[in-house]
Amino acid sequence: MAIDMRVDLAGVSLPNPLVLASGIWGSVAGTLVRAASNGAGAVTSKSCSLAPRIGHPNPTVLHWGHGFINAVGLSNPGAHVQRQELARAHEELAPTGAALIASVFGDTPQGFADAVHVIAEAEPELVELNISCPNVESEFGRPFALDPDAAARATEAVRAVYAGPLLVKLSPNAPELVAVARAVVAAGADGLTAVNTLGPGMLIDLEARRPILSNRVGGISGPALRPVAVRCVFELAGAVAVPIIGTGGVSSGHDALEMIMAGATAVGIGSGLYCEGDGIFRRVLEEMEQWMEQEAVDSLDEIRGCAHG
């Protein structure tokens, strides 16, 4: 019997559970469509704000022993330019069956709402609120995702201007992660993306005797993040009823199935594109299917959240 890999994400049907994570491969139609053509069930654009942002100077992204550290600083062309590119991406994605998730951020709740208002015109299947970027604290203050009330205010403001499926991306650094999740769901979020990068962390170059990233600190992703992300997804799935995209260090079928067992509906892949490029989507799907076949599991629903016992 054929294995059914389709998933329903907040009312949006995805051909498979793998999602290109936000911030990877940018926001242009060409690269988003390429990821979908190579097996991603949904693709997330890089976070965009109402006004354009240059972001931090290089070095901004570094590969270290166990993953990446980055502080790109939310560089983006602004919502009006992004809207056109995403409209094109949306059109070109249609034949692939993959959904477009538009990631948006703002410096205030109204800033989130204003950016979403513009981006929604590109008709993405879902909008994801990035309330959890750890790399702009010196500019914007504490990320909304660290505080249940602030997170709820951003979600509410967007809910007032946007009726479509809404995801909120949470931070593994929130001391009260479950309280934040409950607050954004109560404020109208239809799903969660868990998690953004960990930290922030820092790397120091011995010769230069100073931090390497121009922002000095940056978010940790890749293998080092994975066990933390799995724990976050597990806690959230036990506390809220909305679907979750489990994201953080996934690079194999094993890792993706681990997220599903923790309770994720879909699985984000970001840093995993390093080395392998978009070939990773097909490989991870094949590895998942192989395991499911061996274990006589016909659909992901059978194992979703099974780790909760």
Binding site: G23, I24, W25, G26, S27, V28, G30, T31, K46, T60, V61, L62, H63, F68, N70, V72, S75, G270, S271, L273, Y274, C275, G277
Partner: peptide, 10 residues
């Protein structure tokens, strides 16, 4: 990044 991750050089 130079590493095929950030998408800046599309």
């Amino acid at each position: 990044c130079g590493l095929g991750i950030c998408g800046n050089c599309y």
